[in-house]
Simulated assay, not measured.
Amino acid sequence: MLANILIGLVALLHLYFLVLEMFLWNTPLGRRTFGLEPEFAAASRTLAANQGLYNGFLAAGLIWGLFLGAAGLPVKVFFLGCVIVAGVFGAFTASRKILFVQALPALVALLALYWS
């Protein structure tokens, strides 16, 4: 149960990232969240929306795994792995903060999944 709660939280985080990147990127909240200048936010809006879509797919995969119940174990492991890899890559290429905001929660959920 704890693992599924953590997986649900990771999915919710990625839905939040989707909203921030697809719809709020060029707003005061989006710019403040990502530390963006208005000009850069406007110029990179399309790229951010694309990134938000990918975060939505990660959330969808995690939610799918939850809906499958016990049969969803491989789906949960796969999508948590994807989130971890994306978080590590983001930490190396964009901001170290991504490691803690994205990869760490997914790693904790994956560990909880194996301990349950």
Rank of each mutant, 00 (worst) to 15 (best):
I5M: 08
I5P: 01
I7P: 05
G8C: 08
G8E: 09
L9E: 03
L9V: 07
L9F: 12
V10I: 02
V10Y: 04
V10Q: 02
A11L: 05
L12H: 11
L12E: 12
L13Q: 12
H14P: 13
H14L: 05
H14T: 08
H14Q: 11
H14F: 14
L15F: 14
L15D: 06
Y16H: 08
Y16C: 02
Y16L: 10
L18E: 07
L18P: 01
V19T: 13
L20T: 07
E21R: 01
E21T: 01
E21M: 08
E21F: 05
L24H: 07
W25S: 01
T27N: 04
P28Y: 03
L29P: 09
G30Y: 14
G30A: 11
R32F: 11
R32W: 15
T33C: 00
T33L: 00
F34W: 15
F34P: 03
F34M: 09
G35Y: 09
G35L: 02
L36S: 09
L36H: 10
P38G: 01
E39K: 07
E39G: 02
A41P: 09
A41R: 04
A42P: 10
A43L: 08
R45S: 14
T46E: 13
T46A: 12
L47T: 07
L47N: 11
A48T: 06
A48I: 08
A49N: 05
Q51V: 12
G52T: 04
L53H: 04
Y54I: 10
Y54L: 12
Y54R: 05
Y54G: 03
Y54C: 00
F57D: 03
F57R: 01
L58T: 02
L58D: 04
A59Q: 05
A59N: 06
G61H: 09
W64C: 06
W64R: 00
G65C: 10
G65Q: 08
L66S: 04
F67C: 04
L68R: 10
A71L: 14
L73I: 12
P74W: 05
V75P: 08
V75R: 01
K76L: 15
K76F: 05
K76H: 05
K76R: 12
V77F: 06
F78N: 01
F79K: 01
L80H: 05
C82M: 15
C82R: 00
V83Y: 05
V83S: 02
I84V: 14
V85P: 08
A86M: 06
A86T: 10
A86P: 03
A86W: 11
G87R: 05
V88S: 04
F89L: 14
G90R: 02
G90P: 09
A91L: 02
F92A: 06
F92H: 05
T93I: 09
T93F: 14
T93C: 04
A94Q: 13
A94F: 14
S95L: 03
R96M: 09
R96K: 13
K97F: 15
L99F: 15
F100N: 00
F100Y: 15
F100R: 01
V101S: 04
V101R: 07
Q102L: 02
Q102F: 08
L104I: 10
L104P: 09
A106K: 06
A106Y: 13
L107E: 05
V108A: 11
A109M: 09
A109P: 13
L111S: 11
A112I: 04
L113F: 13
L113E: 15
L113C: 12
Y114A: 00
W115P: 00
W115D: 00
S116I: 06
